[in-house]
């Protein structure tokens, strides 16, 4: 499966919907989207990974790159992910300590105090 990307804004939070496989072939598209969002002033990103079938270290690198960019603007990049096979990769690489990871978009919004 290829990669599908979409995004929308809710209050100050930009929710990035990702579906499909994030690998060495498709990750550049996600990187371009994150760069574009930051360049347009969106500094609080929430990446919903619930429909991601596959994520490799190239994808992790893109997410880390996005995090570095938003942090440069005092922003945030957090994730929604409950899939064990995806979470395992974050655990192996120690990135669970770097990203905020939530079980749902609502939970993430609540944690930010931006809900409603």
């Amino acid at each position: 499966m290829d990669l599908k990307l979409d995004h929308h804004n809710e209050d100050r939070l930009t929710i990035v919907e990702v579906e499909g496989e994030i690998d060495v072939y498709t990750a550049p598209r996600l990187r371009e989207l994150l760069i574009d969002l930051v360049n347009k002033g969106n500094f609080h990103l929430l990446v919903n990974m619930e429909k991601v079938d596959f994520l490799d270290s190239t994808g992790l690198g893109v997410l880390v790159g996005g995090l570095k960019r938003v942090r440069a603007h005092d922003g945030s990049l957090e994730l929604v992910c409950t899939q064990e096979r995806i979470l395992k990769i974050f655990r192996i690489t120690g990135l669970t300590k770097v990203f905020g990871i939530y079980a749902s978009v609502d939970e993430a919004k609540e944690a930010h105090g931006r809900d409603k």
Binding site: P28, R31, D56, S57, T58, L60, G61, V62, V64, G65, G66, K68, I89, I92, T93
Partner: peptide
């Protein structure tokens, strides 16, 4: 701070 978002080779082997 050292990780590149385009190439994370050591990362891959860690995985």
């Amino acid at each position: 701070s050292m990780l590149s978002d385009s190439y994370t080779s050591g990362f891959g082997i860690a995985v």
